[in-house]
Deep mutational scan, measured.
Amino acid sequence: EETYEVDGEEQLKKVEKMLRDRNLDVEVEIHNGKFVIRAK
């Protein structure tokens, strides 16, 4: 499992696309105004 923490939606979209391109399962949560992306 990998976890990424990003600020802002633009970064979120980039990271999310990169992970989905690797066929990973992606979950996004918001913690303290930051996006936390978990990939399995």
Rank of each mutant, 00 (worst) to 15 (best):
E1K: 09
E1I: 14
E1G: 11
E1C: 15
E1Y: 14
E1D: 11
E2L: 13
E2W: 15
E2K: 08
E2V: 12
E2H: 11
E2Q: 08
T3D: 03
T3Q: 09
T3P: 04
T3N: 06
Y4W: 13
Y4M: 04
Y4N: 01
Y4D: 03
Y4V: 04
Y4F: 08
Y4Q: 02
E5K: 08
E5F: 13
V6L: 08
D7T: 11
D7A: 09
D7I: 13
G8M: 07
G8I: 06
G8C: 15
E9H: 09
E9W: 15
E9N: 07
E9G: 06
E9Y: 14
E10S: 07
E10F: 08
E10L: 07
E10P: 03
Q11R: 05
Q11Y: 08
Q11P: 03
K13W: 13
K13M: 11
K13S: 07
K13R: 13
K13L: 10
K14E: 11
K14V: 11
K14L: 13
K14N: 07
K14R: 12
V15K: 03
V15I: 14
V15W: 10
V15Q: 00
V15A: 04
V15Y: 11
E16N: 06
E16G: 04
E16I: 15
E16H: 10
E16L: 15
E16F: 15
E16K: 13
K17H: 05
K17R: 10
K17N: 06
M18P: 00
M18S: 05
M18G: 01
M18N: 03
M18A: 08
M18L: 09
L19M: 05
L19H: 01
L19Q: 00
L19S: 01
L19V: 02
L19T: 00
R20P: 01
R20N: 04
R20W: 07
R20V: 03
D21W: 11
D21V: 07
D21Q: 09
D21L: 12
D21P: 00
D21E: 12
R22E: 03
R22A: 05
R22L: 08
N23C: 15
N23R: 09
N23W: 11
L24I: 08
L24W: 11
L24R: 04
L24C: 15
D25F: 14
D25S: 12
D25Q: 13
V26S: 03
V26E: 02
V26R: 01
V26A: 05
V26D: 02
V26L: 10
E27V: 14
E27D: 08
E27I: 14
V28C: 15
V28R: 00
V28K: 00
V28Y: 06
V28E: 01
V28Q: 00
V28M: 04
E29A: 09
E29K: 08
E29D: 06
E29Q: 09
E29F: 15
E29M: 11
E29W: 14
I30Q: 09
H31V: 15
H31F: 12
H31Y: 13
H31M: 12
H31N: 07
H31L: 13
H31K: 13
H31P: 02
N32I: 04
N32V: 03
N32T: 01
N32Q: 05
G33H: 07
G33N: 06
G33F: 00
G33K: 02
G33V: 01
G33Y: 04
G33A: 02
K34R: 13
K34I: 10
K34V: 09
K34Q: 05
F35R: 03
F35N: 01
F35Q: 01
F35L: 09
F35V: 06
F35C: 09
F35Y: 12
V36R: 10
V36N: 00
V36W: 08
V36Q: 04
V36H: 06
I37R: 00
I37E: 01
I37Y: 02
I37A: 02
I37N: 00
I37G: 01
I37C: 11
R38E: 00
R38W: 06
R38V: 05
A39F: 12
A39I: 15
A39C: 15
A39H: 04
A39S: 07
A39R: 04
K40N: 06
K40C: 14
K40D: 03
K40L: 10
K40H: 10
K40P: 04
